[in-house]
């Protein structure tokens, strides 16, 4: 590992004299720099999207999985009896930590945002709500429903999974899309750099011929090109990553960590570390792409 790092460093530091044997290639240099910068910027956003959706999926899953609600609708004179029966059932159900009937004040508080404070709760057939807190892996919803149907006909169990599952699944899919985007960005970067390297190699066919005539080995010729493209990709990607990071930091609301999905696309704390590998990875992609292009070219020329 240490040796590999040292080799990478001395490769990047290079040999000034060897470097000059290949003339500067303005166009492909700019193309590589620009591509690497743009792709790094896109990677930063794809990464932020992936991390944010991953975070949301985890939070939703956790919060929603822990609580559910039992709603009892019954004629006013049976409501208290059914509530007591339901609480009995819940208390004896494995996987339920606590079950508690909401008080009238609490129900009023829940409804106030929708109907205003002057709601005459007594006059309306408001269902009784029971808050269930789960423990461990939760309870068996199907079994509980069957028992409730037999003993408390007016009870409806709302275990949130009905709408939780698609949300968590959607977040998971978004996250996968982010990962796919990063892969595609990597592949496009490799393709663009391959094209730029091929163009530089053909523009320098005569230089390569001269180098071979005076006894240059494949590795020497390959290194002269590979080093350049690797350095350019590293520089471009570093600039792109920095720009992407700054833009993310400037996104409104990101720092406040609010719940909304859109304001949640930021990076927080250790997430920023994810940006560090982007420039070296871009350099590695450029290294591999250029080396392959150079080897193919030498193979064809001989």
């Amino acid at each position: 590992m240490k040796r590999a790092a040292w080799q990478a460093l001395s490769f990047l530091a290079g040999d000034v004299q060897a470097d000059r044997t290949v003339p500067p290639t303005g166009f492909t240099a700019r193309l590589t720099l620009f591509t690497a910068a743009a792709m790094a910027l896109l990677t930063v956003f794809a990464l932020a999207l992936s991390l944010a959706t991953g975070r949301l999926a985890a939070r939703w899953g956790e919060e929603l999985a822990q609580t559910s609600t039992l709603r009892i609708s019954a004629p006013a004179e049976q409501l208290a009896a059914q509530t007591a029966a339901a609480l009995d059932v819940l208390r004896t159900t494995p996987g339920i930590a606590r079950a508690r009937a909401l008080t009238e004040e609490e129900e009023q508080a829940l409804l106030t945002p929708w109907f205003g404070p002057d709601l005459p709760l007594d006059a309306l057939p408001i269902p009784q709500l029971i808050e269930i807190e789960e423990e461990g892996d939760g309870y068996d919803a199907t079994g509980l429903r069957a028992r409730l149907q037999a003993e408390v006909p007016g009870a409806v169990l709302d275990d949130h999974t009905r709408w939780r599952e698609p949300l968590v699944a959607a977040a998971g899919r978004l996250r996968a899309l982010g990962a796919l985007a990063i892969l595609l960005i990597g592949a496009s970067t490799a393709a663009m750099i391959t094209l730029a390297a091929q163009s530089a190699l053909s523009a320098n066919a005569q230089v390569i011929r001269v180098l071979r005539l005076v006894g240059a080995r494949d590795a020497y010729i390959t290194r002269a090109f590979v080093r350049r493209f690797t350095l350019r990709a590293l520089t471009g990607a570093a600039a792109g990553t920095l720009a992407g990071g700054v833009l993310l930091a400037l996104l409104p609301g990101a720092a406040r960590g609010t719940d909304s999905f859109l304001t949640g696309i930021g990076l927080a704390g250790a997430d920023w570390l994810w940006l560090l590998p982007i420039p070296p990875l871009a350099a590695a992609v450029a290294f591999a792409a250029t080396r392959m292009a150079a080897r193919r070219m030498l193979e064809r020329q001989s």
Partner: peptide, 28 residues
């Protein structure tokens, strides 16, 4: 190719068309 390269280091050639790198000074 690499074997050929090593052999070429033992043969000095003046090519009819010289074969220089035009972007480098004579010394290089």
């Amino acid at each position: 190719r690499d074997g050929l390269a090593l052999n070429r280091r033992r043969i000095g050639v003046v090519h009819q068309d010289c074969q220089f790198l035009d972007h480098l000074p004579l010394t290089d």
